[in-house]
Design a protein around this nucleic acid. Sequence first.
DNA 1: ATTTGTATTTCACTTATTGAAACTCCATTT
DNA 2: AAATGGAGTTTCAATAAGTGAAATACAAAT
Lengths: 222, 222
Amino acid sequence: MADTSTRSVERALLLLGAVCERGTVSLAEAARDAGLSASTALRLLRTLESTGFVRRDGAGGYRAGLRVVQLGAQALSSESLVSLAEGALDRLVGLTGESAYLSVPSHDGHGVYLAVREGTHSVRHASWVGRSIPLEGTAVGAVLSGTTPSTGYVVVRDGVEADVTAIAAPVRAGGRIAAALSVVVPSYRIREDESAGIGMHVAREAAAILPVTSATPEGESA
Amino acid sequence: MADTSTRSVERALLLLGAVCERGTVSLAEAARDAGLSASTALRLLRTLESTGFVRRDGAGGYRAGLRVVQLGAQALSSESLVSLAEGALDRLVGLTGESAYLSVPSHDGHGVYLAVREGTHSVRHASWVGRSIPLEGTAVGAVLSGTTPSTGYVVVRDGVEADVTAIAAPVRAGGRIAAALSVVVPSYRIREDESAGIGMHVAREAAAILPVTSATPEGESA
DNA sequence: ATTTGTATTTCACTTATTGAAACTCCATTT
DNA sequence: AAATGGAGTTTCAATAAGTGAAATACAAAT
């Protein structure tokens, strides 16, 4: 498929990724990241700017524009991975009473929450869509980093967030880790031996999210 | 600036928009939407697919891919419009005790919520990021459609959502309406004459969100 | 003053992009 | 059964779209 791809589009999308992942980026940095000449990068960034995908801040740096936010939000609301995961998230909350999350890698050494279902207890873990999660010291991080043990899930008790136990499992697409499904419990409410039960539920739900999809785009292009 | 734009990139981004806005789209529909030949659309969509921005479902339709969701979420979590609006949203909730929202136009005749802050009452309006809002009969819709009266805010009592009163004001960038900031109150909790007080707060907060940004991409390209 | 780095513009060159045509397949209509 | 219409996919000749080196302007550092 690589030979039927459109080079200028690939380059523009690379630049868009650099802008969104870096938060703010100068023309020179973006050009270096994408391995392009400054003039080529400028023209492509100008195209992204004129279509609303990036915007320019007062200091001349490029930032994510409204269009990518809009499309991201629309993608979130359509029958996307998030929609597919909604049933799983609801079932996990119903089963455990604890908060459940879907997260994806964000290519800058973090994960990011895409979907959130809060638990039913008065005292529960609280977080939000768009929140960044470190990959070090978190169950989600271990899963997204590809270090899930053979049990199929990861348990991190009192990791980077004090007083909570996080249990996560990988959502796979075509053999690759597309996302992580997780449940976060106040540690006082879960004994060490109880985490296995929840872990198996999380792993089962995660495995069922993308059951029959064709290989992912990355798989197909590899 | 139009003469220094990159046509193939513009076309690919148009196709990306069609996919995200339609939820699922066939090659023929996407090509028609973008005014391209089928073979051109196929190649551009393949490029979007190989870079993760779109994916193909089992029936051959194109859908939003993980990459646009990731970048959208990252854009959401960075110092973007949403981050800038967070203070305003928090202050409005603190001030009114009611639910507050940031929404943007979605180009398909709707608005879409980008950020949500729930109110502090037990009985409150509830909604979510990514939710679509009709432009007809809503305060947000009036604002995004550019029909804000000189008061600076719009009040819609018992509009498309029964039993709530919505108050919205425009977030402007370079003289254009970039988004709407709104507060939604159960109607039993707000008298007709009280909406003006809240409206002025919403308008003030909205006006302060993008104080010194350069013109928006659309403004610059016009 | 010189050097370094960034952003922007220009333009000759070439190759990347394009779309018409052909092909395959399927469903519907005659 | 044959004809029609539509979708998806492949091919390839033509050309103009995209490219990047070079020049320019500006600012900051030495």
